[in-house]
Amino acid sequence: MSSKTINIKLKVWRQKDATTKGKFENYELSEISTASSFLEMMDVLNEKLVGEGNEPVAFDHDCREGICGMCSLFVNGHAHGPDTLVTTCQLHMRKFKDDETITIEPWRAGGFPVIKDLMVDRNAFEKIMQAGGFVSVSTGGVPDANAIPIPKKDSDEAMDAASCIGCGACVATCKNSSAMLFVSAKVSQLALLPQGKLEASRRAKNMVAVMDELGFGNCSNTGACEMECPKGISLAHIARLNREFLVATIKE
């Protein structure tokens, strides 16, 4: 774990609350260990700000191991920063050079309004999930887990889709702020499994309807979402969503 220290310049979006206009503030930090995670660097910045009597930068974070999906920074033009298959909390300072200027912005999308500084409101994802991101089964009275065999291939592909952490990097990075990758991950996971198959069309239709209402743009298949997705969710799931949606329409 060879580590050295670097000095960095930060350009950070500051915004008091949802209704106040925001702007970029410049900060400088010295002797940041390259073994630190990006958010630990932000902790150092905040300790410094508090020490100076200023308000720390608000940003979402929780598990700091890349699974809760809470962290959400747009760093130097990339959702979750310039590394692949990581969330911001897994991004490390060794990815940056000495004296580098790092621009940190919140997710920008109509569907994700800023709450404060770098923190955004992702409630739109909740509403989409509530519209159909489930199998309509209640607790109890279900068959034995081995009653329905599921081909390993389907189960594995469902798992690929299910690894979505709902962070919103797909929306943040999409030039159209489209939420298709997020929606497709859930639709695809459940459409692949016999338990979810029964209501697959209905689910696709209901989730897309809510997605369309909430200010997300249209998918134009650029594939940037897949590349920035910390879990590498494939565009193939979007194709499956499209298929389910068309089937839903035909069935009507």
Partner: peptide, 22 residues
């Protein structure tokens, strides 16, 4: 045991064998 049944019914993709069983 009920937990495993419940989670499977919800669409939790537990690891499976080539037989299709858990």
């Amino acid at each position: 045991n009920d937990i495993i049944d419940q989670a499977t019914a919800q669409g939790v993709p537990f690891a499976r064998e080539y037989s299709g069983l858990l």
